[in-house]
């Protein structure tokens, strides 16, 4: 014989516990999935930014190389003429020193 109070309490608690476990499990699982997706997406985004950053730097260097190559080919830049090369590339006010001129 079971008092109705205990019966109600037990059945309601069992029902609530079951539903709660189910809801919590589903919520936990879905949250984990969401977190994994989120972490993956953020990692991929970060990796893409790294890719773009590196690519920008290297492409900028390639662009610089292309300019230097163009100057050399059209005669504006020649390793045999260090003064002109220095003015074009690094120091526009460069003047050969006395030692250089000597």
């Amino acid at each position: 014989m079971l008092p109705i109070r205990r019966l109600l309490l037990r059945d309601l608690l069992v029902l609530m516990a079951g539903v709660s476990v189910l809801i919590l499990g589903l919520a936990w699982w879905s949250q984990q999935q969401a977190l994994i997706r989120q972490s993956t997406a953020r990692t991929q985004t970060a990796l893409r930014h790294l890719d773009e950053s590196l690519r920008q730097q290297l492409e900028a260097s390639q662009s610089l190389g292309g300019v230097v190559r163009g100057w050399w080919l059209n005669g504006a830049l020649d390793p045999a003429n260090p003064g002109e090369a220095a003015r074009m590339l690094s120091c526009p006010c460069w003047r050969p020193s006395a030692a250089s001129r000597a």
């Binding site: 730097q57 290297l58 900028a60 260097s61 610089l64 300019v67 230097v68 050399w72 830049l77 020649d78 390793p79 045999a80 260090p82 090369a85 003015r87 074009m88 590339l89 690094s90 120091c91 526009p92």
Partner: peptide
Amino acid sequence: MPMLASQRSITSLNLARTDGRSLLF
């Protein structure tokens, strides 16, 4: 503005002719 003055990426620029004369920035 000289080209290299705005550069922060590259470390050096080598220009070498076939006769061996070269400039290193």
